[in-house]
Protein backbone atom coordinates (compact mmCIF):
# COMPACT_ATOMS: atom_id res chain seq x y z
CA UNK A 1 0.00 0.00 0.00
CA UNK A 2 2.76 2.43 1.01
CA UNK A 3 4.60 1.80 -2.26
CA UNK A 4 1.59 3.08 -4.23
CA UNK A 5 1.51 6.48 -2.59
CA UNK A 6 3.96 8.30 -4.93
CA UNK A 7 2.12 7.18 -8.06
CA UNK A 8 -1.26 8.03 -6.50
CA UNK A 9 -0.03 11.53 -5.67
CA UNK A 10 1.40 11.98 -9.15
CA UNK A 11 -1.90 10.88 -10.69
CA UNK A 12 -3.77 13.27 -8.39
CA UNK A 13 -1.69 16.22 -9.64
CA UNK A 14 -1.99 15.17 -13.28
CA UNK A 15 -5.77 14.77 -13.01
CA UNK A 16 -6.19 18.06 -11.18
CA UNK A 17 -4.14 19.98 -13.74
CA UNK A 18 -5.78 18.40 -16.77
CA UNK A 19 -9.25 18.96 -15.28
CA UNK A 20 -8.71 22.58 -14.29
CA UNK A 21 -6.55 23.76 -17.18
CA UNK A 22 -7.91 21.74 -20.10
CA UNK A 23 -11.16 19.90 -19.64
CA UNK A 24 -13.06 22.53 -17.64
CA UNK A 25 -11.99 25.07 -20.26
CA UNK A 26 -13.52 23.29 -23.22
CA UNK A 27 -16.87 25.09 -22.99
CA UNK A 28 -18.18 23.13 -25.96
CA UNK A 29 -21.81 23.34 -24.90
CA UNK A 30 -23.78 23.75 -21.69
CA UNK A 31 -24.88 20.14 -22.08
CA UNK A 32 -21.36 18.75 -22.36
CA UNK A 33 -19.56 19.42 -19.13
CA UNK A 34 -17.11 16.54 -18.80
CA UNK A 35 -15.14 15.53 -15.70
CA UNK A 36 -12.10 13.28 -15.90
CA UNK A 37 -11.48 13.87 -12.21
CA UNK A 38 -13.58 11.00 -10.71
CA UNK A 39 -10.89 8.73 -12.18
CA UNK A 40 -8.78 9.53 -9.12
CA UNK A 41 -11.16 7.69 -6.80
CA UNK A 42 -11.88 5.01 -9.40
CA UNK A 43 -8.21 4.03 -9.78
CA UNK A 44 -7.37 3.76 -6.08
CA UNK A 45 -6.17 0.28 -4.98
CA UNK A 46 -8.78 -2.41 -4.28
CA UNK A 47 -7.38 -3.09 -0.83
CA UNK A 48 -8.20 0.41 0.43
CA UNK A 49 -10.88 0.43 3.12
CA UNK A 50 -14.22 2.07 2.52
CA UNK A 51 -13.39 4.74 5.07
CA UNK A 52 -10.13 5.58 3.27
CA UNK A 53 -11.99 5.73 -0.07
CA UNK A 54 -14.57 8.12 1.38
CA UNK A 55 -11.87 10.38 2.77
CA UNK A 56 -9.86 10.31 -0.46
CA UNK A 57 -13.01 11.12 -2.45
CA UNK A 58 -14.01 14.02 -0.27
CA UNK A 59 -10.57 15.59 0.08
CA UNK A 60 -9.73 15.29 -3.62
CA UNK A 61 -13.15 16.71 -4.48
CA UNK A 62 -12.51 19.61 -2.15
CA UNK A 63 -9.17 20.30 -3.87
CA UNK A 64 -11.00 20.54 -7.21
CA UNK A 65 -13.67 22.76 -5.63
CA UNK A 66 -11.01 25.26 -4.64
CA UNK A 67 -9.94 25.65 -8.26
CA UNK A 68 -13.40 25.66 -9.81
CA UNK A 69 -15.03 27.86 -7.16
CA UNK A 70 -17.74 25.33 -6.35
CA UNK A 71 -16.93 24.75 -2.66
CA UNK A 72 -18.51 21.58 -1.31
CA UNK A 73 -20.06 20.23 -4.52
CA UNK A 74 -17.25 18.02 -5.80
CA UNK A 75 -16.43 17.13 -2.19
CA UNK A 76 -19.98 15.85 -1.70
CA UNK A 77 -19.96 13.96 -5.01
CA UNK A 78 -16.49 12.52 -4.40
CA UNK A 79 -17.50 11.36 -0.94
CA UNK A 80 -20.53 9.57 -2.39
CA UNK A 81 -18.36 8.02 -5.09
CA UNK A 82 -15.90 6.72 -2.48
CA UNK A 83 -18.74 5.32 -0.37
CA UNK A 84 -20.46 3.52 -3.24
CA UNK A 85 -17.33 2.30 -5.09
CA UNK A 86 -17.02 -1.09 -3.29
CA UNK A 87 -20.73 -1.77 -3.93
CA UNK A 88 -20.37 -0.85 -7.60
CA UNK A 89 -17.35 -3.10 -8.08
CA UNK A 90 -19.19 -5.98 -6.43
CA UNK A 91 -22.20 -5.39 -8.70
CA UNK A 92 -20.43 -5.30 -12.05
CA UNK A 93 -17.79 -7.97 -11.48
CA UNK A 94 -18.57 -11.70 -12.00
CA UNK A 95 -17.83 -13.79 -8.89
CA UNK A 96 -14.50 -15.54 -8.79
CA UNK A 97 -12.67 -12.94 -10.85
CA UNK A 98 -9.07 -12.41 -9.80
CA UNK A 99 -8.05 -8.87 -9.15
CA UNK A 100 -4.89 -6.89 -9.70
CA UNK A 101 -3.69 -4.40 -7.09
CA UNK A 102 -5.97 -1.66 -8.42
CA UNK A 103 -8.51 -1.22 -11.23
CA UNK A 104 -6.57 -1.46 -14.47
CA UNK A 105 -7.69 -1.33 -18.08
CA UNK A 106 -5.13 -3.96 -19.12
CA UNK A 107 -5.85 -6.41 -16.33
CA UNK A 108 -9.65 -6.20 -16.12
CA UNK A 109 -10.23 -5.63 -19.82
CA UNK A 110 -11.58 -2.65 -21.72
CA UNK A 111 -15.24 -3.67 -21.46
CA UNK A 112 -15.17 -4.01 -17.70
CA UNK A 113 -13.28 -0.75 -17.38
CA UNK A 114 -15.70 1.22 -19.58
CA UNK A 115 -18.72 -0.15 -17.69
CA UNK A 116 -16.99 0.65 -14.40
CA UNK A 117 -16.10 4.23 -15.36
CA UNK A 118 -19.41 4.77 -17.17
CA UNK A 119 -21.71 3.82 -14.29
CA UNK A 120 -19.55 5.55 -11.70
CA UNK A 121 -19.35 8.77 -13.71
CA UNK A 122 -23.09 8.67 -14.43
CA UNK A 123 -23.81 8.54 -10.71
CA UNK A 124 -21.15 11.11 -9.90
CA UNK A 125 -22.39 13.63 -12.47
CA UNK A 126 -26.07 13.07 -11.65
CA UNK A 127 -25.30 13.85 -8.03
CA UNK A 128 -23.06 16.79 -8.91
CA UNK A 129 -25.37 18.45 -11.46
CA UNK A 130 -28.36 18.20 -9.12
CA UNK A 131 -26.27 19.95 -6.47
CA UNK A 132 -25.17 22.55 -8.99
CA UNK A 133 -28.64 23.33 -10.34
CA UNK A 134 -30.20 23.18 -6.85
CA UNK A 135 -33.68 23.02 -8.39
CA UNK A 136 -35.18 20.10 -10.31
CA UNK A 137 -37.06 22.46 -12.58
CA UNK A 138 -35.52 21.29 -15.86
CA UNK A 139 -35.36 17.52 -15.36
CA UNK A 140 -35.08 16.70 -19.07
CA UNK A 141 -32.33 19.25 -19.61
CA UNK A 142 -30.57 17.88 -16.56
CA UNK A 143 -30.75 14.26 -17.69
CA UNK A 144 -29.54 15.13 -21.18
CA UNK A 145 -26.67 17.05 -19.62
CA UNK A 146 -25.76 14.12 -17.36
CA UNK A 147 -25.85 11.56 -20.19
CA UNK A 148 -23.90 13.62 -22.73
CA UNK A 149 -21.35 14.72 -20.14
CA UNK A 150 -20.86 11.12 -19.00
CA UNK A 151 -20.22 9.92 -22.55
CA UNK A 152 -17.57 12.59 -23.17
CA UNK A 153 -16.09 12.07 -19.69
CA UNK A 154 -15.59 8.35 -20.27
CA UNK A 155 -13.83 9.05 -23.58
CA UNK A 156 -11.45 11.42 -21.79
CA UNK A 157 -10.93 8.90 -18.98
CA UNK A 158 -9.96 6.10 -21.38
CA UNK A 159 -7.64 8.54 -23.14
CA UNK A 160 -6.08 9.51 -19.82
CA UNK A 161 -5.61 5.89 -18.77
CA UNK A 162 -3.94 4.97 -22.06
CA UNK A 163 -1.72 8.05 -21.92
CA UNK A 164 -0.54 7.86 -18.34
CA UNK A 165 -0.48 4.22 -17.28
CA UNK A 166 2.32 1.83 -17.91
CA UNK A 167 1.57 -1.50 -19.56
CA UNK A 168 3.53 -3.41 -16.95
CA UNK A 169 0.80 -4.58 -14.65
CA UNK A 170 2.64 -4.72 -11.36
CA UNK A 171 4.08 -1.23 -11.42
CA UNK A 172 0.73 0.32 -12.15
CA UNK A 173 -1.04 1.42 -9.05
Amino acid sequence: MISHIPSILLRFILLLLSQVLIISNINFSTYVNPYVYPLFVLLLPFEMSRLALMMAGMLSGFALDIFLGSIGMHAAAGLALGYFRPLLIKLITPTGTEFEVSPNIYAQGTTWFIIYCGTATLLYLLFYFILEEVTLRNVLHLLLKVILSTLVSVIFMILFVYLFSSRRKKRFA
Partner: peptide
Protein backbone atom coordinates in the same frame (compact mmCIF):
# COMPACT_ATOMS: atom_id res chain seq x y z
CA UNK B 1 -20.80 3.45 11.52
CA UNK B 2 -19.60 3.90 7.94
CA UNK B 3 -23.03 4.84 6.64
CA UNK B 4 -23.57 7.25 9.52
CA UNK B 5 -20.17 8.81 8.90
CA UNK B 6 -21.08 9.07 5.22
CA UNK B 7 -24.29 10.92 6.09
CA UNK B 8 -22.49 13.17 8.54
CA UNK B 9 -19.83 14.16 6.01
CA UNK B 10 -22.44 14.73 3.30
CA UNK B 11 -24.25 17.07 5.67
CA UNK B 12 -20.96 18.89 6.22
CA UNK B 13 -20.53 19.22 2.45
CA UNK B 14 -24.08 20.50 2.03
CA UNK B 15 -23.42 23.03 4.72
CA UNK B 16 -20.33 24.17 2.80
CA UNK B 17 -22.35 24.46 -0.41
CA UNK B 18 -25.09 26.37 1.39
CA UNK B 19 -22.55 28.72 2.92
CA UNK B 20 -21.01 29.29 -0.51
CA UNK B 21 -24.09 29.69 -2.69
CA UNK B 22 -23.76 32.35 -5.42
CA UNK B 23 -24.82 35.12 -3.10
CA UNK B 24 -22.14 34.29 -0.56
CA UNK B 25 -19.65 33.05 -3.12
Amino acid sequence: HLFLLFLLLEILCFYLIYRNNPYNQ
